[in-house]
Nucleic acid binder design. Sequence first.
DNA 1: TTTGTATATGAAAAGGATTACATAGGAGGT
DNA 2: ACCTCCTATGTAATCCTTTTCATATACAAA
Lengths: 334, 334
Amino acid sequence: MSTIEDVAKEANVSVATVSRVINNPEIVKEETRLRVYEAIEKLSYEPNISARNLRKNETRVVLIVTPNITNPYYAHILAGIGDMAQTHGYSALIYNTYGKESEQKKALDMLKKKRSDGAIILASNMDSNWIEDYASEYPIVLCSEYPMDVDISRVSIDNYDAAYNVMQYIYSLGHRKIAMISSTNNYISTYLRLKAYQDFLNIETIECNEEYIQYADEVYSFKSGKEATLKLLNLKEKPSAIFCISDTIALGAIAAIKESNLDIPQDICVVGFDDVDYTTMFHPYLTTVSQPCYKLGTESFRLLNNLFKNGIKSIEKRIIPYELIVRETTKSLF
Amino acid sequence: MSTIEDVAKEANVSVATVSRVINNPEIVKEETRLRVYEAIEKLSYEPNISARNLRKNETRVVLIVTPNITNPYYAHILAGIGDMAQTHGYSALIYNTYGKESEQKKALDMLKKKRSDGAIILASNMDSNWIEDYASEYPIVLCSEYPMDVDISRVSIDNYDAAYNVMQYIYSLGHRKIAMISSTNNYISTYLRLKAYQDFLNIETIECNEEYIQYADEVYSFKSGKEATLKLLNLKEKPSAIFCISDTIALGAIAAIKESNLDIPQDICVVGFDDVDYTTMFHPYLTTVSQPCYKLGTESFRLLNNLFKNGIKSIEKRIIPYELIVRETTKSLF
DNA sequence: TTTGTATATGAAAAGGATTACATAGGAGGT
DNA sequence: ACCTCCTATGTAATCCTTTTCATATACAAA
């Protein structure tokens, strides 16, 4: 591996000039610049990253704090972040917290230890205001989920609006007995989707039957979705439509409904949320809200890069459009 | 952030001694060692990674070359690698190749450019012997897939054995008309599983009907699995069991069979491969071969770490046990 | 007492880049 | 002709560790 000094000798200039050609080409005379480029080419020189990072006091590593890569929803976001980081010369350090807040803090300590220049946090709880302490010192972007009243860069869809839209759609199909399966987790998306559900019923002056709100577990497990659905199916007055807060739960709902020998969408309609890959892996294909996960990822990195370049105060809160995708689990009652 | 010099002053020793305490504690006198530890604690000193890397000429980055994080099979492996890398002080640079060999090479050039200390390659083709050129110069581990005759560290399951086992199992259920859906990709796993299928039929002197071997596309898409299955169902003599080379293909098969108004496992049995999450997300639950993906990941890192520590020649080829998991898509004919 | 050896530590070089500061040369103004 | 200013480049300091080599002390052997 050749060094900057080798290049300098080859091009008959000082190392400073070579460095300038690399970092500020416009300030060196064209003639010299070309000579240096030639030398770089000839020696196939690549700057030593560690030396550069040492001098510039940066790591070129972005920390990604995720509950679980294995979840396809997060995986797509990660792909977006990763590709974007790649092209900007950053490597991604993926830290799996498995949902534990203590692990989240441990992850963020990497910032203190200068092992990473900034972080993207994928699933922070609604009440994790402590994140602000980190965000006031280090570049941090929140993706999809965020604590309620903190002033930190973030990117997400408009969960309230999306859920409200789903309700309007279900309502427009003629349904009036609409149930919701929420989750016991502490995400703002969960809160907002449930709130939209309740608000919609209020505005349409539909009685909001407490029993129509069931809860799946905090990781949206298939099994808990199934159980919650079973409770709904055992009600005296079964709902005619179920709005599930996530696709896996909706899949559980579908399984439960089928096992109860009811037909979808004939007897009961189901709507999911997220549009993960397997919603079209078997019939009935799921009607759901599609989240632009890859884009959530790329935008997250863009915002983080903003913080890097324009300072920690250049906060941006970005809302990305969602899309309601109607497939086979919903049908008009008329 | 305090530096090694601050610590040295605080402990009244030279920087060299502090460095020794950190990297070779046993060679410094206990008394001094403790004093240094105290100073480190007091100043909450953390060594500067870039400086260390510069001096030691390493990057502490491992490159992970994967076709697609988004695939749950790879995602679990990644989780394993990531967690392991984490604990060994490495960060993971994930490079998505989207299946292109040219991208694979671009990824591996990161080794040449000294942007990473070694690489784990997740899905190399059977004929990618060029990888040996890299592996002879840099630490490289192949995970799951590998070129046929190269001498490179790798970890995988015994695909031939697993597939043979599946065939024995299907045979033991009484099936004689057994079809296989393979793939047009160029992985050794594909080759070995198909070979096991053929060998088994030969040994049992069952005629190997050419039409019973169909091919799904190279990324095991659901859709192509469905299409391949349709071809099998249109045969004069339908198979009574279908061995699919991957779970998504098996899901496609299930969809196709159901749409043809046939029952699983009553009319046709289906076996998958990999045991990805969604095989139990709806009925019938898939009978399949479970691969220990997370472990494949952790072992891959272990082998890579071996190469780091014991040199590029300390090659190991590790086979990890698989497991045949019988669920609802298979049933005895008797 | 002298010499040799082992142990514990320090001084300083090395690693490869960026950058503050210095300088040389040319253009332009008076 | 002289001064000023700007442009283009060079010199050397700096970032923080690790590590080689040197030194000092203590103890054993001769």
